[in-house]
Simulated scan of single mutants.
Amino acid sequence: MAGTVLVAGEIVVDALPYFDQGYEGPNIHEEAEALVEEETHRYRSTKNNQSYLIVQNYSGSENDIMINEFQRLADQQPIEFLSMKWYELTAPSSGQKNVIIAWQGCVNNSMLQLEHQAVRIENLEVMSQQWLGINKNLVHMIEHTQKELQKLKKHIIIEGKLMVKTLQNGKEIFGSDVSDKGFITNFTETRSKEEKQFKSDI
């Protein structure tokens, strides 16, 4: 691998990307793991780095209905069918067909059901208005993510071209002394120029 030297601007260069050799040598992976293990034992943490984290309460928003439903799913029980009895418009019994009070009770029940349905419709309208704002936020998040994805793709393309070019340059000077300061300086400056050129072309 390349030696450590100073190049223009006093930048320390101790590696040449895609050109350094030796990473795939025998026992390299085991030696790296041994170094990491040794350092973790030598510099043990003196405090709990997770002490600032808040213990998450994932059941805080569960109500009795949700708890019962989760329990039903855990027990693999079939779902209960929705009862429509409350919505039935019942008529007076056969013995009260001519009783005005009985019919008045049925009418009151119908009016209550209509009022209930009106409240439900109003709630749905409020939800639809709220959804418009939520939907705008979702669209904004998607657009932002797509822009970030395009930037990432450009970086991948640039790095791919740089890798190919770097490997080509490496083959041309293979066998040279890569620890030579002049070689590393020229190699680094050439890569920097190529990177700027690739970014300007995209």
Rank of each mutant, 00 (worst) to 15 (best):
M1S: 14
G3H: 11
L6G: 05
A8F: 12
E10Y: 08
V12F: 00
A15E: 05
L16M: 07
P17D: 03
P17Q: 00
P17M: 09
Y18C: 05
D20N: 08
D20R: 03
Q21G: 08
Q21M: 01
P26D: 08
P26S: 08
P26T: 08
H29S: 09
E31L: 14
E33Q: 07
L35C: 07
E37W: 12
E37P: 00
E39M: 10
E39N: 08
E39F: 07
T40H: 09
T40Y: 13
T40F: 14
R42M: 03
T46C: 05
S51F: 01
L53V: 09
V55Y: 05
V55F: 07
Q56A: 12
Q56S: 08
N57R: 05
S59G: 01
S61N: 15
E62N: 14
N63E: 07
N63M: 06
N63C: 03
D64A: 15
I65Y: 07
M66N: 10
F70T: 02
F70N: 13
Q71H: 08
R72K: 04
L73T: 01
Q77M: 14
Q77E: 13
Q77L: 15
P78L: 13
P78N: 12
E80R: 13
F81A: 15
S83Y: 06
M84A: 06
W86L: 02
E88G: 04
E88D: 14
S94A: 10
N98F: 15
I100C: 02
I100E: 04
A102E: 08
W103H: 15
G105C: 12
G105L: 15
C106T: 10
V107W: 00
N108Y: 03
N109E: 07
Q113C: 04
L114M: 03
E115R: 11
A118C: 08
A118D: 13
A118F: 09
V119R: 14
V119Y: 06
R120S: 11
I121M: 15
I121S: 15
E122T: 10
E122D: 10
E122Q: 10
L124K: 09
L124N: 09
L124S: 08
V126Q: 11
S128M: 14
Q129E: 13
L132E: 04
I134W: 00
N135E: 15
N135Q: 14
K136C: 00
K136P: 00
K136S: 06
N137W: 06
N137M: 07
L138Y: 11
V139L: 13
I142W: 14
H144Y: 01
K147C: 03
K151M: 03
K151A: 05
K153Q: 04
K154L: 00
H155R: 12
I156V: 11
I156D: 01
I156N: 02
K161E: 12
V164S: 12
L167Q: 14
K171C: 11
E172G: 10
G175E: 07
S176Q: 15
D177A: 02
S179G: 02
S179F: 06
D180N: 12
F183A: 04
T185N: 08
T185K: 03
N186K: 07
N186D: 11
F187C: 05
E189Q: 12
R191L: 10
K193P: 00
E195N: 02
K196S: 11
F198A: 09
K199A: 10
S200P: 01
